[in-house]
């Protein structure tokens, strides 16, 4: 009887969750080139992570995270999807 009441809460609207943007292959390539690193060197996010599931991410995808930062106003961070 609970299910009828309301759709499931959309976690992307929660105040703790920053914006997650999936990068295209082209953007990924550019990013790797600009930092001159391999994909393994990025911080990771699990494929089972709530946000990774929400965005339907596959292993090897790179996501850009736009955080609100008290020191920079807005800071970007990248994570690679791992198993």
């Amino acid at each position: 009887m609970k299910e009828e009441k309301k759709d499931k809460f959309d976690i992307t609207t929660h105040s703790l969750v920053p914006e997650h943007i999936k990068l295209t292959e082209e953007e990924k390539k550019q990013l790797l080139q600009s930092y001159n690193i391999s994909i393994k060197q990025f911080p990771a996010i699990s494929q089972d992570d709530a946000m990774a599931k929400k965005l339907n991410l596959k292993i090897g995808d790179v996501i850009k995270i736009v955080r609100k930062s008290p020191t920079l106003g807005q800071s970007t961070y990248y994570r690679v999807v791992i198993k």
Binding site: I11, T13, H14, L16, V17, I45, S46, D49, A50
Partner: peptide, 30 residues
């Protein structure tokens, strides 16, 4: 978060691990 009357976007807990499970690792960091 599924309770109808609450403002789910601002509701929070002090259990970091639980936030990680429900909202993802970025929310846990915050």
């Amino acid at each position: 978060l599924e309770i109808e009357e609450i403002d789910a976007a601002r509701t929070r807990t002090n259990d970091v691990a639980e936030i990680g499970d429900v909202l993802g690792v970025e929310a846990a960091r915050q």
